[in-house]
């Protein structure tokens, strides 16, 4: 067991190193110059523009050779310094992420968890009832199959503009300053609801369908048949089926939670909701190396943690995995 996790840890470290390096490289492969893109926003006299650009390149360390920049990147990373954003100059990347990420977490975690729980329950439930399966599931199919942004825009238009029940922009009213008060919390929730709902609806069907299919697959698997032929009660078979069917669902959940730092660009654009997703998109557009690196670092960490959790859960839930742990040769 200890050896198993030691090896895992080594692999994870390697993955981390490779992924972070690739993500360091990718933005730098993009043609163009981030400083010029930044200063290009203001029309400057040529002489001044050159001096300003030179100065900024020096400040950002972009005048150094690539290998030096790469070394600098790792050294400052170990000091917990992710650099200064270019697009949101001069805000440190850590601060950009710290200020934006709560909005993403507040939206995505409840949406993912709720849809996962409801979807799984519903999917497992529907898989056993043909009539229900026939009627209700198709509706969730349609929701899941709907392009997210399009659905969100319709939701925003119908509930926001036409009916005027929910606000259509911002994380809380533009007429209020944040405080820990009932009215603020209610206001926040009111703004939060439509973005949440849109994410919930779209994800719900996916989990439900996944669960339903897995249950059906498991019920039909050899061991179920075998148990059935032995005369085991249906309930017992279903319990086994459910437990096995949960595995892929847990994997999916962990992965979803792992990439949470990437944010939800679509939600943000449609509801003008703050968060990291849109910033990341802008960062890519403006070649903001540091912000891109910073965000990806967290995405990498998130995915790796998720994977680790999956590994652990597999070991716990599925005893067969434990036997196969050493690999074919073991």
């Amino acid at each position: 067991m200890g050896r198993y996790f030691r090896r895992k840890l080594l692999i994870y470290l390697l993955t981390f190193f490779a992924a972070v390096s690739i993500n360091w490289m990718i933005p730098r492969l993009m043609p163009g110059d981030p400083i010029r893109a930044l200063i290009g926003r203001a029309a400057l006299r040529a002489e001044a523009a050159d001096k300003v650009a030179e100065y900024f390149s020096r400040i950002y360390g972009l005048d150094q050779p690539a290998w030096r920049q790469y070394v600098n990147f790792w050294t400052s990373l170990f000091k917990g310094d992710l650099g200064i954003s270019i697009y949101l100059s001069p805000k440190p990347v850590t601060q950009v992420i710290r200020d934006s990420i709560p909005f993403d977490l507040g939206l995505l975690i409840p949406a993912i968890l709720c849809s996962w729980i409801v979807g799984n329950k519903f999917g497992a439930f529907a898989a056993r009832r043909k009539r229900l399966d026939g009627i209700v599931l198709p509706i969730w199919y349609v929701f899941t199959a709907t392009p997210y942004m399009w659905l969100a825009i319709l939701l925003a238009y119908v509930f926001g503009v036409l009916l005027g029940i929910f606000p259509i922009a911002g994380a809380y009213s533009f007429a209020i300053s944040p405080s820990l008060s009932i009215s603020f919390i209610l206001n926040y929730l009111k703004h939060w609801f439509l973005p949440f709902l849109s994410l919930f609806i779209v994800q719900l069907g996916g989990w439900a369908i996944g669960m339903r299919n897995m249950i059906i697959y498991e019920l039909e698997a050899d061991y179920s048949r075998y148990m059935e032929s032995l005369g085991a009660p249906r309930k017992l078979i279903r319990r086994y089926a459910f437990r096995n069917a949960m595995l892929p669902q847990i994997t999916g959940l962990a992965l979803q939670l792992g990439v949470i730092v990437a944010g939800a660009v679509g939600t943000q654009v449609v509801f003008s909701y703050p968060g990291i997703g849109y910033l990341l998109l802008q960062a890519v557009m403006y070649k903001d190396y540091f912000l891109i690196q910073g965000c990806f670092l967290f995405i990498v960490i998130g995915v790796l943690i998720a994977n680790f959790v999956i590994d652990v859960i597999y070991v716990i839930v599925d005893p067969r995995v434990r036997h196969g742990m050493g690999g074919e040769t073991a």
Binding site: A18, N23, I26, G258, I299, T329
Partner: peptide, 29 residues
């Protein structure tokens, strides 16, 4: 899944790396 062991780990690593490669940046490049 079948081979397991080191090969599994390497492929798993590859899978993870692909998961974390930014689609957006890739598209723009």
């Amino acid at each position: 899944g079948y081979k397991g062991g080191i090969l599994d780990e390497i492929l798993n690593m590859l899978t993870n790396i692909v998961t974390v490669i930014p689609t957006l940046a890739l598209l723009i490049i």
